[in-house]
Computed example of a mutant assay.
Amino acid sequence: MPSGGDPLVALASLTGVPEAVEAMRKAVDRVYGHRVMRRRSNEVTSEAALRGARGSAALAGADWALEEVRRRTDFSGDPEARTVGAALRLTAEAGQLLSVWRQSPLRVLARLHLVASGNATEEVTVGRPRLVGEAVDEPFIQAPLPSADEVAGRLDGLARLIISGSSAPALVIASVVHGELLALRPFSSHNGLVARAAERIVLIGSGLDPKAICPAEVGHAEQGQAAYSAAFEGYLSGTPQGMSDWFAHCGRAVELGARESTAVCEALQRGAA
């Protein structure tokens, strides 16, 4: 990326990215224009949060049916249950951190990891980036693991980018935040869940999806783990085509999230939900 100015603007002009942004914007506008949104938007938001958490957990290895997620009250048992519980907590917490994100993104990331870990403050690795020699439990991300020093430097750069602001489309900003956190895996665990929660914060806080009714996590899960991994490999490559593919994948994820909430609106309209 260029060293001066707004580096994300250059990414927004890559081949195929303007089209991905436009397609995503139209999908979001359609669901916001649904007549149910005028009277029952809170119900749509709640349902989108549940479905988004289910999708994020699925990509972390806990692919539960939606009704099982809805039915459960105890998520403290086996590893899959704890993953689903972490995803639910993160989805609930994301909306509380919007005002802090633009001023202190690293503080928000630390909070997200603490929430994902169940506030396990007795574990010294919780809520802070990993140090030299500390292991990372993230089996679904197979990319080479950056050193702790590289993590610290790139996290600082990402934070400065967020704080300084960008005129790039929300899709580009959210996708870069998501991709960087997956690439760095800055925490000892739950990095995928945290990365997707941070993407959610950007999409909501940017004004693209202020009511949080277009859960990208749903779309990431619907496209499947293999497609998610392949698109992420494009981000890691740093090539124009690879980056464009990642943005297109993330844009499609938002479109699918919007489609999911449109179906929820239709069900509410019919009295079926």
Score class of each variant (00 low, 15 high):
Gly207Val: 02
Ile162Gly: 03
Arg102Val: 12
Ser104Asn: 13
Ser189Pro: 06
Gly5Trp: 11
Val151Asn: 00
Glu266Asp: 14
Arg107Val: 08
Gly61Cys: 13
Ala57His: 03
Gln96His: 15
Ser117Asn: 10
Ala152Glu: 15
Ile173Glu: 04
His249Lys: 03
Gln142Ser: 15
Lys26Val: 14
Ser229Met: 03
Leu182Asn: 05
Leu208Ala: 08
Gln103Thr: 11
Ala57Ser: 13
Glu260Ala: 09
Arg89His: 09
Ala230Asn: 10
Ala272Met: 07
Gln269Arg: 14
Val202Pro: 05
Cys265Trp: 00
Ala58Leu: 06
Ala267Asn: 14
Ser104Thr: 09
Thr262Gln: 12
Gly33Ala: 15
Glu222Thr: 12
Ala20Glu: 04
Glu180Thr: 11
Gly242His: 11
His34Arg: 10
Ser244Tyr: 12
Leu131Val: 13
Pro210Ser: 02
Tyr32Phe: 15
Ala174Val: 06
Ala263Pro: 01
Ala174Lys: 00
Ala81Lys: 04
Asp156Ala: 15
Gly192Met: 06
Gly251Glu: 01
Ala226Val: 15
Val254Tyr: 01
Arg252Gln: 08
Arg128Cys: 11
Leu203Trp: 00
Gln103Glu: 05
Arg54Pro: 05
Ser3Cys: 02
Glu123Pro: 03
Thr91Gln: 15
Ala53Asn: 09
Ala230Lys: 13
Arg102Lys: 15
Leu268Lys: 08
Arg107Lys: 10
Val100Asn: 01
Leu155Gly: 06
Pro2Leu: 09
Arg25Lys: 15
Thr73Trp: 13
Val172Gly: 00
Ala60Leu: 02
Leu181Gly: 02
Glu134Asp: 04
Glu260Gly: 02
Ile201Gln: 08
Gly127Ser: 04
Leu171Val: 05
Val151Phe: 00
Ala221Val: 13
Glu180Asp: 15
Thr121Tyr: 08
Asp74Phe: 12
Glu93Asn: 01
Thr45Met: 10
Glu47Met: 04
Ala258Cys: 09
Leu59Cys: 14
Val36Gly: 08
Ala230Met: 11
Ala227Trp: 04
Val126Phe: 02
Ser237His: 04
Ala143Ser: 13
Arg185Asn: 00
